[in-house]
Design a protein around this nucleic acid. Structure first.
Length: 1129
RNA sequence: GGGGCACUAGCUCAGGUGGUUAGAGCGCACCCCUGAUAAGGGUGAGGUCGCUAGUUCGAGUCUAGCGUGCCCCA
């Protein structure tokens, strides 16, 4: 449904039809959109009524207004557009960074995203979470540089390019050409950079894209090289084996994510094999495996150290050793157990392996070891270990110092040494191996084992195998204590990350497998002498040129031929692979090893690599190290957070902890309404840009702040954003619109003299006290990185502002006289709105800017140009008034109780009542509440507010122990005390307490004295009154309606009917009318009695009792007919 | 299999250091207001705080075990 379009005349007399009216909503909104209202929220056309009423108000506004008129109907997306243009034109973001040298810095590191996919709501969340704390710190006077970054390396990028090219695998890439492939990768990583920037700008995340660091850039790569060469020189970089999920047919390892995509349920052979014990006649270990093809590479058997192992003698005298708990399952219940040993007793025992094609190298072999992963769920309780083909196997064998044997070629076939199966594919050979074992009597039992097993996601018939590859490692285990110490010093939000997810991850830390056998990544800066095997590492291009000035001649030549070749590519494959050097007096040529590195190492280097440190910008690095604040999603715990912390711990051991970040907010994953992961495939989310165009960026931001507790998954759905509009944005907007409308009508301006705080009425001082409390609370929460808590304080304040302050103060603003009270009201609401705009600016930067521009900046050249250049509100000691805050809380509670009484007794508010009686605890409370007597009388529509002198008449008393005080004092006697108080006559005890300031209670152990502070008095309304109690208060209503009250009630009904008629007639607020009426009996009496008031409240200049046949506005009131004829004057 | 997190109203979620009437918003019911007006407001119903033990005078909160869900790793 399209909102109707129409043109509203500009209030300042700009010619009709003018496209851009400078007087609405800042500078850029087309006039013809003014009356659409919130098509964004509810896409309906506005009625004639609201439009013409608004017009009529504009008519009043035109007389010398200070503030631009504000429609209560607002389109937040359109405001966004205005402010985005304003910020861009006036370069507000850049201005927040001016004068940075004199300010205290607040350092932020941007975790670099990869722009080869579209941004989704999860990215929106991290961006707005970054933004709120950065804007807050900026307004607090810090210098907050925000440099963007792009992560550009890694397997996902390569896979994306492979998809584009329709190729797959290492060989295909080599065939395509590594150089061309690298260039495609560069194009690919920026494929969606436009969308990322657009989303970032649209959501209002200020970040400097112009100076963004890019991980493939030459200076960045050189910094990474420097880090690696430092580690190499400290002996922290070494080559070893790593067991990976290997795709034999493709010749490549797969990442965990890829492996996860390819699981299938299949049947594998499950075999139990005899491993004869050396030195024990006719005795064998019975071990179990589901991968027979790994048996030729067996190195050890694993047992559980604490597990019991039984020796079982079979009928033919053969003995088998297996877990005692599994004897029945494997050999039957009547098996003959002749001995039992602990697993620990078996450790070190040698056995005969099933195959002896080759001897394991590098340590002993064919012995029993103990391992933590041996389970008794299946098998025999002894596990065959082949370190070349299993991660656990590898780890245990390494820990125990066992040897290593890998009888399998990378293509998945057996090498020639395995004479019986040479050339056979591993999985295909299983059957023949089993047959071979069976023939030799080594096989004990064969079964089928159904389980999930990974296959290659790109070729679902190709099984993956675990396979040990030569790989480069960082010896993080050597320095892990320093990393742990660093972790302890970080402020994590939520706190449990420290000892939980991150702490546990560090506990299980293994050396960082750094190298990748891929193409697009930072090349490992290690050169190996092809004759001597000597190894060198370099930390920059300059270091290479020192060794061989001609090292990059091939690159320069290629560049001359093709000017599009970026310098950045000289430090990438394939160019870097052609770089070599020789050394005087040393045979052989130094050539680079083929690997590139894990891209997590790249991003973990960003604290220094973003500056090209140490090769350049040493001062910039020092100024920006460490970061005060970072935030990303929880999946970065073992990603970026780990790489940052580990690299920094290794590189800068002398620096004060923590580094390179002090505060880290860890965000949960985003899910949809039902808790399901957001996924492009399921389309279970609205494109953030689409959503923002519908409800505005502030609504999306607010919904995210309100719904996000760090560490918890965030359920996000479109309704949350519309709720944000209603609950927060529109409430503020309504108050703002209200203020501007009446300030303009009244001619109130910021220059009007303001009454001193002490001279303002309670209501004003109250709202300012609430404001001050909110300022303190929001500051405290934001300082603590608890944005969701800050949100709650803001919501509470806005509710009080809208539903108590403005509602109760409306009449003060439209008073016609020129009073101090009115000036106080305008001053107060003005000051509150400005501080509220500043207070909420970090959260909802768009709307608050609109308020600020209109309320402050427009006519005050001395004011900051933007709310984001203003100072965050400071606590103001003068505004503190806890007593008043408490009083108003009680006053509001009195109103609530009174309303409840009316509801329960079906007494509508329109019917006046004689009196409301409040039961108060003491005179002080009474005086406090009495200060708001008129407000309470109006809210409850009672003629008088009384305070009872006889509480016992209305109220039952109950005394309850003050547990917090009496608990420590009485200990186990507390329940007895509670019981005694409950059983006693509460009212009598209360009277005793009033008289003596103490009471005596009989307990089983003797009497005790209780003072007033040791008990709580509970009041409850007696049932024979129209009364209600709650929060320690009681309110009684006099429900008797006498004739006078009834007539007043009827008069209000009449006013109500005439007002409704005015609305039906679509009259302007200030339009005068003439009323002719007729009625009978009591209704007529009531009208006659209250004629002046009725006429006054309905702006009737004529009000006469005449028969008016055929009137359009006849109504019925309590069964009587009211004849009404109304005409505009 | 290991680790982490969560479980509170129909729904989405808050509930520093244990203190006895467990809160909010939405939704629902009833109602009010009509000069913020296709807006706004009030009152109410609705909860054995996942389950079971334990510590304690006292547990939504602390401890242990179990269950369910999600995340990370294997």
């Amino acid at each position: 449904m399209q909102p109707r379009r129409s043109v509203v005349r500009c209030p300042k007399g700009i010619r009709p039809g003018f496209d851009l009216c400078p007087h609405f909503f800042g500078k850029r909104l087309p006039v013809d959109q003014l009356s659409h209202g919130r098509g964004s929220i509810r896409s309906t056309a506005h009625s004639q009524t609201s439009r013409s009423r608004w017009k009529s108000r504009l008519g009043v506004v035109c007389r010398g207004a200070m503030f631009d008129p504000v429609s209560p109907q607002v389109s937040f997306p359109e405001l966004d557009a205005t402010q985005l243009a304003f910020w861009e034109n006036t370069r507000i973001f850049e201005k927040t960074l001016e004068g940075g040298e004199e300010k205290q810095p607040f350092i932020f590191y941007e975790g670099p995203p990869t722009a080869n996919g579209m941004p989704h709501p999860g990215h929106v969340l991290t961006r707005v979470m970054k933004d709120v704390f950065l804007r807050y710190r900026t307004m607090c006077g810090y210098y907050v540089p925000r440099r963007a970054g792009w992560d550009t390396h890694g397997l996902p990028v390569e896979v994306e390019v492979e998809k584009e090219l329709g190729i797959s695998g290492r060989e295909a890439i080599q065939e395509y050409g590594v150089e061309a492939f690298s260039r495609r990768c560069i194009d690919s990583v920026f494929k969606y950079i436009g969308e990322w920037q657009k989303m970032t700008e649209r959501i209002g995340f200020w970040v400097d894209f112009d100076s963004a660091y890019v991980t493939f850039h030459k200076s960045y790569v050189e910094s990474v090289w420097w880090a690696l060469s430092e580690m190499f020189n400290k002996g922290l970089l070494y080559q070893g084996y790593k067991v990976v999920w290997w795709w034999p047919q493709g010749g490549t390892a797969l990442s965990a994510g890829e492996v996860g995509q390819g699981y299938r349920t299949i049947d594998d052979p499950s075999v139990m094999i005899r491993f004869p014990v050396v030195g024990e006649e006719r005795t064998s270990f019975l071990a179990w495996t589901t991968t027979p093809w790994t048996l030729p590479s067996n190195v050890a058997l694993a047992v559980g150290a604490k597990t019991d192992y039984a020796t079982v003698e079979l009928e033919d005298g053969e003995r088998l050793v297996l877990a005692a708990a599994l004897v029945g399952k494997v050999l039957g219940e009547e098996a003959n157990v002749v001995a039992t040993r602990k697993g620990s007793e078996l450790v070190g025992v040698s056995y005969e392996p099933p195959f002896r094609y080759a001897e394991p190298q590098g340590g002993p072999a064919w012995q029993v070891v103990d391992a933590d992963f041996v389970s008794l769920d299946s098998g025999s309780g002894l596990v065959h270990l082949a370190p070349a083909f299993g991660e656990d196997d590898f780890r245990v064998c390494k820990e125990k110092g066992m040897g290593f044997l890998q009888l399998m070629k990378p293509d998945g076939t057996f090498p020639d040494e395995v004479t019986d199966f040479a050339g056979r594919f591993c999985k295909d050979a299983d059957r023949d191996i089993i047959r071979n074992l069976s023939a030799r009597g080594v096989l004990f039992k064969e079964e089928v084992y159904r389980h999930d097993y990974p296959f290659c996601w790109r070729a679902m018939d190709d099984p993956l195998i675990q396979y040990a590859r030569r790989s480069w490692f960082i010896r993080t285990t050597q320095e892990i204590d320093r990393v742990k110490e660093n972790n302890q010093a970080v402020h994590w939000e939520p706190d449990h990350i420290k000892s939980g997810r991150m702490g546990q991850f560090l506990e299980g830390n293994v050396d960082w497998a750094l190298s990748r056998e891929r193409f697009w990544g930072t090349p490992l800066p290690i050169w190996k002498n092809d004759e001597t095997g000597a190894v060198e590492s370099v930390g920059s291009v300059a270091e290479i040129l020192e060794r061989n000035p001609e090292a990059f001649a091939h690159f320069e030549k290629a560049k001359a031929a093709d000017p599009t070749l970026q310098d950045h590519l000289m430090v990438h494959k394939p160019w870097i692979d052609a770089v070599s050097w020789t050394k005087d007096g040393e045979p052989g040529v130094y050539r680079r090893v083929p690997e590139v590195i894990d891209c997590w190492f790249d991003s973990g280097c960003m604290p220094f690599a973003q500056w090209g440190f140490p090769h350049q910008n040493a001062d910039a690095f020092e100024r920006n190290f460490p970061a005060d604040f970072i935030t990303e999603a929880v999946d970065q715990t073992r990603g970026w957070f780990y790489s940052l912390m580990t690299i920094s711990s290794l590189m800068f051991p002398q620096r004060a902890l923590p580094h390179p970040f002090k505060n880290c907010v860890v965000l949960g994953l985003m899910t949809d309404e039902k808790g399901k992961k957001l996924s492009k495939r399921d389309k279970n989310y609205t494109d953030p840009l689409v959503l923002m165009d519908r409800v505005g960026a502030d609504a999306v931001r607010w919904a995210l702040y309100a719904g996000t507790v760090p560490g918890q998954s965030t359920r996000f759905f479109d309704d949350a954003a519309t709720d944000a509009v209603r609950e927060f944005l529109l409430k503020i907007w309504n108050v703002y619109s209200f203020f501007v409308t009446y300030a303009n009508i009244d001619g109130w301006t910021a220059a009007t003299a303001r009454p001193a705080l002490a001279d303002r009425p309670d209501m004003d001082r109250w709202v300012l006290a609430e404001l001050d409390a909110t300022v303190r609370a929001v500051r405290r929460e934001l300082d603590d990185y608890k944005s969701h808590m800050a949100v709650r304080h803001l919501l509470g304040f806005v509710d009080g502002l809208s539903n108590w302050y403005v509602r109760r103060s409306r009449a003060r603003f439209w008073a016609s006289d020129d009073s101090d009270d009115k000036r106080a009201a305008f001053s107060t609401l003005y000051e509150v709105l400005i501080d509220l705009a500043k207070l909420a600016a970090p959260f909802v930067p768009f709307m608050t800017e609109t308020l600020f521009q209109n309320l402050v900046h427009k006519d005050d050249p001395a004011a900051p140009e933007s709310v984001h250049l203003a100072s965050f509100p400071e606590p103001d000691a003068a505004r503190i008034d806890e007593e008043l805050r408490k009083t108003v809380e009680r006053v509001r509670n009195v109103v609530t109780l009174g309303q409840r009484v009316r509801n329960e007794n079906k007494l509508k508010v329109r019917q006046p009542l004689a009196e409301a009686i409040v039961v108060v605890a003491d005179d002080e409370e009474r005086r406090g509440i009495d200060r708001f007597a008129s407000a309470i009388r109006e809210e409850l529509n009672v003629r008088a507010l009384g305070f009872t002198q006889e509480p016992h008449k209305y109220v039952e008393f109950e005394l309850v122990p003050n547990f917090r005080v009496l608990g420590p004092k009485l200990g186990k006697q507390v329940p007895a005390c509670k019981k005694a108080l409950a059983e006693a006559d509460g009212s009598a005890l209360y009277a005793e307490m009033e008289a003596n300031e103490k009471i005596v209670v009989q307990l089983p152990n003797g009497p005790i004295e209780l003072t007033p502070s040791e008990v709580e008095v509970r009041l409850s309304a007696r049932e024979d009154f129209a009364a209600s109690s709650g929060s320690g208060q009681v309110v009684v209503l006099d429900t008797r309606v006498d004739d006078s009250l009834r007539r007043e009630g009827l008069a209000r009904e009449v006013i109500n009917r005439i007002q409704r008629a005015r609305k039906t007639m679509d009259l302007a607020y200030e339009a005068r009318i003439e009323v002719k009426w007729n009625a009978d009996g009591e209704l007529a009496e009531a009208i006659e009695e209250h004629a002046a008031r009725i006429a006054g409240e309905t702006l009737a200049t004529g009000f006469s009792r005449e028969s008016a046949p055929g009137s359009a506005h006849d109504a019925e009131i309590d069964g009587s007919t009211l004849s009404l004829s109304i005409s505009a004057v």
